[in-house]
Write a protein that binds this DNA or RNA. Sequence first.
DNA 1: ATTAATCCTATAACATTAGTAGGATAAAAA
DNA 2: TTTTTATCCTACTAATGTTATAGGATTAAT
Lengths: 134, 134
Amino acid sequence: MKINSKIRYGLRTMIEIASANDVNGVLQKDIAKNQSISLKYLDSIILSLKLKGLITNSKGKGSGYKLSRAAEEITILDIYTAFEQITFVDCICNKKFCDRSEDCPGRDYWIEMKKGFEAMLLNKTLAQIVERKA
Amino acid sequence: MKINSKIRYGLRTMIEIASANDVNGVLQKDIAKNQSISLKYLDSIILSLKLKGLITNSKGKGSGYKLSRAAEEITILDIYTAFEQITFVDCICNKKFCDRSEDCPGRDYWIEMKKGFEAMLLNKTLAQIVERKA
DNA sequence: ATTAATCCTATAACATTAGTAGGATAAAAA
DNA sequence: TTTTTATCCTACTAATGTTATAGGATTAAT
């Protein structure tokens, strides 16, 4: 089980934007250069973060990205779910995925585990990561 | 991010073995039938559990599987790692995977998250799942 | 000996991921 | 208003990983 590259790059992108103290925001091409991500690939990552409402920008020449709200108010769960839902097993979202869903100790456990995982991501803010605070 | 089928089937297999009160243990073919897993695929799942030392059996006709130790002493982390290591991101195990490993707030976070995840799996026993206790 | 069962390796179909390509659109700057 | 710089969006492909299945070797009870 691996964290996929969009989530990894997405976190790094958010860290870079949060770390910048430039009032004009951070240009996509600078993020691409600093983070060693191709401009094209970064395109889709930034799009996801934007659709989730975590970053904003204007368009055209000279624009740049900023956080939509304070880094203290952005959790890792926000960033993670910008790219994918947390499922772990399909029968959590869709009982019909498996016959035994109605009465399955395994499924009950995965649901519990999912909740624990979400809580873990929810309890960490972007600000804590940028400031390297536990 | 999904839990793969071997881990899912592996947990169900362990639940079935733990739930059985047959002194002779549970036959592989019965697990296959009850859990709707092909005998051949179950082969590899049982092999992993056995190599990890979670279950034992004798060989040949009439044999069956039992837990190697009490269900109270088997954690979900034991079962999970019978099938794969918990990595999340490659730079955790191998710093050379990425140039910025030496000083990367993102990597620091993934390491912390991994620890939290492992702790979560460690704090749940097979016995708790079988008895459906929180 | 026969039979029922596990042990083990190889391989194939399928799904997902990671990343690229090509261009459309928007707006600042000249 | 033309140019330039930058984002927006869709489609595609190569590589990788997952989910099995196939075929047979080995083991030991009957």
